[in-house]
Simulated scan of single mutants.
Amino acid sequence: MSPENLAAIRELAGPIAAIGVTGTLGWVVTTWLRIKHGYPLEGSWGQKIYPKTNDQAMQRIALLTSENAELHAQLGSLKDRLATVERIVTDSGYQLTAQIEALRGDGKPMN
């Protein structure tokens, strides 16, 4: 090898090493962020590898599931109440008055 080639290799060795170290650190940080936020990793053949969830995440999922069930129950009761209110509001005034009077025992027939 000529001295010119050796000088060129020495000049490029630093930047090439810096690029290699930067790429490796970037890959490590990216992998760490994926694990931290629960994103799947990729195996050597491109398959998805999901990191294991911890107990705190499982407890949070259980809490959210129970809260979701409670909210669905409340929503169902509110739908029933809304249907009753809609039926009362859309009823004509005469029919409602006749039903109330019939309940009072006035003796008027209901239509």
Rank of each mutant, 00 (worst) to 15 (best):
T53R: 06
T22A: 11
G26P: 04
A8H: 03
N54P: 04
I9S: 00
V85H: 02
W32V: 15
A73C: 08
V21L: 03
T84K: 05
P3H: 10
P15A: 01
A57E: 05
S92D: 15
L103N: 15
Y50E: 15
S92W: 06
K36D: 05
I49T: 09
I9R: 06
P109Y: 07
G93V: 10
R81C: 00
I100N: 14
K48I: 03
A7Y: 01
P40Y: 06
E86M: 03
T24E: 13
E86V: 06
G93C: 05
Q47A: 00
R104H: 08
S66C: 03
L96Q: 08
W32I: 15
T65G: 04
S77W: 07
I35Y: 11
Y39T: 07
G76A: 11
E86Q: 05
E11K: 02
R34F: 12
D55F: 03
W32G: 13
M1S: 10
A7F: 00
E42C: 13
L103P: 07
P3M: 12
V85L: 07
L78T: 06
S44W: 11
R60T: 00
I61Q: 05
V85G: 02
I49A: 08
E101N: 02
D91G: 12
Q74L: 14
T90M: 08
T84Q: 02
E42Y: 09
Y94Q: 14
G107V: 00
E86S: 04
I61H: 02
W45V: 13
H72V: 12
A62T: 00
P40F: 04
P15V: 01
S77V: 12
L75H: 07
L96C: 02
I49H: 13
I19Q: 15
I100K: 07
W32F: 11
L96V: 08
G76F: 08
A17W: 00
R34L: 15
V89K: 06
Q99R: 15
T53N: 06
G38T: 03
L63Q: 13
S2H: 02
S2E: 03
Q59P: 00
Q47S: 06
A18C: 03
A83Y: 00
L25P: 05
